[in-house]
Design a protein around this nucleic acid. Sequence first.
DNA 1: TATGAATGAGATTTCATTCAT
DNA 2: GATGAATGAAATCTCATTCAT
Lengths: 211, 211, 211, 211
Amino acid sequence: MASPVRPAKATPKGRATDAAFRHSARTIFARDGYLSATVGDIAAEAGKSEATFYNYYTSKADLLGALAEDFHAETTRFAQRSYRTGRAPQEAQREAVAGFWQTYAERRGELIGIFQAAMLDAEFAGHWLDIRARAIRNIAREIRHAQHRGYCPGVDPELTASALSAMLEQFCYVWQAQGGDRIEHDFTVERAIDTLSSVWFHAVYWKPSGP
Amino acid sequence: MASPVRPAKATPKGRATDAAFRHSARTIFARDGYLSATVGDIAAEAGKSEATFYNYYTSKADLLGALAEDFHAETTRFAQRSYRTGRAPQEAQREAVAGFWQTYAERRGELIGIFQAAMLDAEFAGHWLDIRARAIRNIAREIRHAQHRGYCPGVDPELTASALSAMLEQFCYVWQAQGGDRIEHDFTVERAIDTLSSVWFHAVYWKPSGP
Amino acid sequence: MASPVRPAKATPKGRATDAAFRHSARTIFARDGYLSATVGDIAAEAGKSEATFYNYYTSKADLLGALAEDFHAETTRFAQRSYRTGRAPQEAQREAVAGFWQTYAERRGELIGIFQAAMLDAEFAGHWLDIRARAIRNIAREIRHAQHRGYCPGVDPELTASALSAMLEQFCYVWQAQGGDRIEHDFTVERAIDTLSSVWFHAVYWKPSGP
Amino acid sequence: MASPVRPAKATPKGRATDAAFRHSARTIFARDGYLSATVGDIAAEAGKSEATFYNYYTSKADLLGALAEDFHAETTRFAQRSYRTGRAPQEAQREAVAGFWQTYAERRGELIGIFQAAMLDAEFAGHWLDIRARAIRNIAREIRHAQHRGYCPGVDPELTASALSAMLEQFCYVWQAQGGDRIEHDFTVERAIDTLSSVWFHAVYWKPSGP
DNA sequence: TATGAATGAGATTTCATTCAT
DNA sequence: GATGAATGAAATCTCATTCAT
């Protein structure tokens, strides 16, 4: 988070080292969590010295910030693509949910890092809340749209969006980072996405029953 | 977590000191988070020395474990009461949601502590998952019950329960511990509980439309 | 410099440890200089661990600040005494010079520390300049007094005081901290004080030569 | 100080780079002091890389040594010129004082560097004491000369020279490097030089009063 | 029961310096 | 001649925890 400008390293070797640090950090964060991870761990995993780390990032938080920027850039790109197509709402939703799950799976390291850092560091928490806020506004817009077509009259679009977003996030965290709820269950990704989509869909696309 | 046996202190003075540490810890956890809190902070807030702290608990995690046990005992009592009464499902749900929100508000310190500790410490994560599992099983039972009456055919009761539980938990965390999502919104507790109840209700109590 | 309040340690043992740190610091500063000294050195010389050091002072600079306060308190006491007595100016001066030399000899450690710290740290430099300023104002007053009796007409009292003060300070530093100028010379303290007194006296107590 | 031989770089470009480092060092030393300055700072100010620095100097101390040599060469030239002319002592002195002040102003960077290095490094201290010693011997010769003409009988020429030299040096340091004493005063360079000259003159050119 | 004092262990960070290109 | 990359070494500081009183 220290440097808003983050100039790319000049040489291929430098860029390779930078990539090694990012990759190492994602591995370590995913394995040990952000808080337990030390700069020493990350450097060792990357096969570099601690001092070298500080030639690339000013701190562990700085590196996480860089990962968060990457993540944010990607999800932004994804979200813009996601809601464009003219599909039926249920399908569009399922795709959005699946996309989030997928991103989470691929970016486990940074997500664990970001969540944990947000618990410790108010500045980081702010960052993360900003990212969420954008997603929530998009969801709220969809809900308003549905309301114009007679669905879910009376519900608060923003809070509903916030709740659905919270569900998505926490469910993915529990099942992907924490190893899942301790219930007797035959978990599959397919079913998980079905479940999230179903809750989401029925939470929005209902109409008041007859007279 | 260290001592499975936790004998109550013998004297009134000792019990008062113990209570002071617990109260202090809840305050500090709520203010600074569990991870940032130091034994020194907790002792200072309790008006005792750090050394005294170790006469009562073997570590910060031990104290959190004690708080978690208290919390668990109370929520268990609460849950047993909650589902007994023969009210309409929507009302029963709203009450359950309101109860969780309320408990969260009253126990902010330990809940923040437990969440954060669960992120760092596998043992703690296990504890928390066990507590959640019990709640999830109760919710899943309700969903099965609804399915017998023709609602939400085909959905996975356990995963749906897990998702709703995740929503509840994370929504409360965001709005009570993190200060809320950064959306333009006129938040009230009433509306928050309405929103959660509505999502929950419509996620379960729907029937397939059409002939 | 960190804590304006510096409460004395509660027990005799604590006070002894504190004294040990101060004594150790003076020894180390006098031997290695302030800048070369590490907290580790100081702690080792005091026979304590580094961690213990930080139970007493927040940093090396903090300890130096405490020494500076002690020093300041003593010199203030000394200065108030020095100018009271109704002696001949030459004698009074000689005593003042001797007093400074003596203080310097006794407080070599802190003085070296203060000088060096003043070179690095603007805050410290400010402290030291304040202490000097007080001394300079006293000297300037004496010069004005002399001028009223017809001595050294036309000279600038403040700048002259500043110059004499600079001489005193630097001469003591060179001969007491740096081992003296590399000139062939049979140095004695007596002669050193004579010399400083003589310069000082003749710089002030001259009258314009006759017509 | 590492390389007794310091061969000039072969090419014009090399000499330009060398000059850039020296200039940069003087700027940085004057601004941050020698001790706070890092090789990185100096290289950055010179617009070169740190690695390049080490193609020219073996260390920061080595560069300071080179600057000290330059300085020494120049002051030696100056000093030889200064005392030749057959002026009245008072004028000659004033010129010497003014010359020192002037040199100090022009060479602020290296002088701050040399002073600070002398505080840390015994070898450097030796260098500086050697330079001073030469100046002091010259002053002492002048004092002896004055004594032959009946002035200041009985004073120790070497110590007096040492004291006057200390005054000059420290006064210049305080007013040019540290921003001056914190006294209410309308400082001008003219008055400063007047003051130093006056102290110096009267310290030497007095004769015992009365019969 | 309470606590002042003490410490080991470890993490962060800086910086001078080397080396291959 | 110039430099990007890499590192060893060291200093600072924090904190959980123990122990004697």
